[in-house]
């Protein structure tokens, strides 16, 4: 059984349909990337999983449907989310941002905090700094760290490289790779940066105008010349 199953999912902003019949499964321990241009529906798919968008169809985590649940229950069920805009608490310290993430996982605070600070040592060094004064890369780390503090079974990361320098997004890629290798945490990322996605993910889904157009392993997609030309520009 897959860890996360998405079945014929459609999503709506008012009368506008943003996703159409999206189906995909994510196995436990996998790293999966959704790639596509702006407006392809990647962020909407993650927001749908988090219960932030009106949807039809089904989303199941370990067989349990998440549709209709409030976001806080979805987090408690085991979905951690680092959104594209981070949505940090700008005038709280780094440490307090992380501690808010522990709201539903208070039994594991010390372990989770240690895991986050081991992954991103800069967050321990700047524990007292307000996130409003941090760089984009550090804010991305706080965002991922806060999601990890919820003790998730699956981590959703929306566009982790957007607006970041190559050195920083390589660090973040390395951290996500380490996280997956050391703890077996399942990771779903969205990306416009195809090379980043290909180097990190094992399975890739290409999205266009609210639908999944192509799916395959990173190797399959990389070796398919027609697909590479159509979607990756090389």
């Amino acid at each position: 059984m897959a860890l996360l199953d998405i079945d014929k999912l459609s999503a709506f902003y008012g009368k506008a349909q943003a996703l159409q019949d999206v189906s995909l499964s994510i196995a436990e321990g996998d790293i999966v990337a959704l790639i596509g241009t702006n407006g392809a529906g990647k962020s909407t798919l993650l927001d749908s999983i988090m219960g932030q968008v009106t949807v039809s169809g089904d989303i199941r985590l370990k067989g349990e449907s998440l549709v209709g649940k409030p976001t806080s229950k979805i987090v408690a069920a085991g979905v951690g989310y680092a959104p594209e805009r981070a949505n940090l608490f700008a005038h709280m310290s780094v440490r307090n941002n992380l501690l808010v993430g522990a709201y539903t996982a208070r039994d594991n605070i010390a372990d989770n905090l240690s895991r986050v600070e081991n992954l991103f040592p800069v967050l321990a060094e700047r524990a007292g700094q307000e996130t409003s004064t941090q760089s984009g890369g550090e804010r991305q780390m706080v965002s991922i760290g806060r999601a990890l503090m919820t003790n998730p079974s699956i981590l959703l990361v929306d566009e982790p490289t957007i607006g970041l320098a190559p050195k920083v997004f390589n660090d973040i890629a390395e951290a996500l790779r380490r996280l997956n290798a050391e703890t077996g945490l399942t990771i779903l990322i969205t990306e416009q940066n195809v090379n980043f996605a290909l180097t990190l993910a094992r399975h890739i889904h290409v999205m266009e105008t609210g639908r999944i157009r192509v799916s395959g392993t990173a190797d399959e997609l990389r070796e398919d010349a027609a697909l590479a030309e159509a979607y990756f520009g090389h």
């Binding site: 988090m50 976001t71 806080s72 987090v75 959104p83 949505n87 940090l88 608490f89």
Partner: peptide, 23 residues
Amino acid sequence: THLGRALEAVSMDVKGAAISGVD
């Protein structure tokens, strides 16, 4: 306190609070 921080979190960013598990 966790509850107090959750209140403060909602005052700063409602979506950020919700995806942290705060209702």
